[in-house]
């Protein structure tokens, strides 16, 4: 059957049914349009190793550069990448232990393979510099400049005893719902 074969019932009752169906289709279309993913990339940064965090920031800056909104959710070891210092005052014994054994900033992040007590991380940094690849610190600065949203997981902060004054400025604070709010409306969602 082609379009020309369709016989429209031109009585007023027939047209009323027709109009009703169009209205229904329009409302369904609006619904579908509302549920379209946005130009957005969201990430969970769970790892706290130099190489993995770097990968996260390469993707984040790249995505922001190509016009995507980017949101990074830092949780567990990923929070170590957001530290500017380590403060032990006012922490309980476990929190202190955690603080002493964790990197106190990006400069101290280990690599996920061949770390050898930090020698591997230093070597990787040197190799990247020789190849003119931006450092993690430069990448983070760039992400800032490009408007990448960074959220620190409230629950992880609480569990690990990480205080706000230990973290860099300009972070948002949130939980799983804030991540899901970003992730479910994103075109891509990553766990690093």
């Amino acid at each position: 059957m082609t379009v020309a074969d369709i016989k429209i019932d031109k009585t007023s009752a027939g047209l009323a049914v027709f109009e009703q169906r169009i209205a229904l289709l329009e409302s369904r279309l609006a619904e579908v349009e509302d549920n379209q993913p946005e130009d957005k990339v969201s990430m969970v940064v769970f790892s706290g190793e130099l190489d993995k965090v770097l990968a996260a920031f390469v993707i984040a800056t790249g995505a922001a550069a190509v016009g995507q909104e980017v949101s990074m959710f830092f949780t567990f070891w990923g929070l170590n990448a957001l530290k500017k210092q380590s403060k032990l005052a006012g922490k309980n014994v476990f929190e202190k232990m955690m603080g002493v054994m964790s990197p106190a900033g990006t400069e101290q992040l280990p690599v996920s393979k061949m770390n050898y007590f930090g020698v591997g991380a230093k070597m990787l940094r040197k190799m990247m510099k020789d190849k003119n690849v931006a450092s993690l610190e430069e990448m983070m600065e760039l992400a800032r400049e490009l408007g990448v949203k960074m959220v620190a997981c409230e629950m992880s902060k609480d569990v690990m005893g990480i205080r706000d004054e230990e973290l860099i400025d300009g972070l948002e604070s949130g939980g799983v719902a804030s991540f899901l709010g970003d992730s479910l409306t994103s075109k891509a969602s990553l766990f690093i």
Partner: peptide, 13 residues
């Protein structure tokens, strides 16, 4: 020239 991923795109943007 000399810049690596993702810098060419980032700077071009």
């Amino acid at each position: 020239s000399g810049l690596n991923c993702p810098m060419p795109v980032v700077k071009a943007r």
